[in-house]
């Protein structure tokens, strides 16, 4: 059996903006050898059902991610900062919207 392994290109992560003004949402990845190919592949793979308004692609290797071990130290400290939320504050009853 000959070796069938060869380059499928880099992995690029794909982010799609569905409508103008909306955030770019991660939807998957594609393989591609260069940036233009990655952009076209993202278009051809992930926007076939009218899902797209704009696209980002970037090499997966460029993504820096937190680890599961970071869970406690990164995110739990935000749990008790209730004063960051509007419901923490009391308003006179006569004011219903602020």
């Amino acid at each position: 059996m000959e070796n069938t392994k060869d380059s499928q290109g880099l992995v690029w992560e794909v982010f799609v903006q569905k409508k103008p003004g909306q955030p770019y949402v991660h939807c998957g990845n594609v393989h591609a050898h260069d940036a233009e190919m990655a952009l076209q592949n993202a278009r051809d793979v992930y926007t076939r059902r009218n899902e797209g308004n704009a696209l980002w692609v970037l090499p997966s290797s460029e993504i820096v991610a937190s680890s599961p071990e970071d869970l406690g130290s990164f995110f739990e400290p935000a749990n008790d900062k209730i004063y960051r939320h509007p419901t923490f504050y009391q308003l006179p009853e006569s004011i219903s919207h602020m």
Partner: peptide, 11 residues
């Protein structure tokens, strides 16, 4: 030649 390209050609 690549899966991505089969989708592109079909499009």
């Amino acid at each position: 030649p690549m899966l991505e390209e089969e989708l592109a050609s079909a499009n």
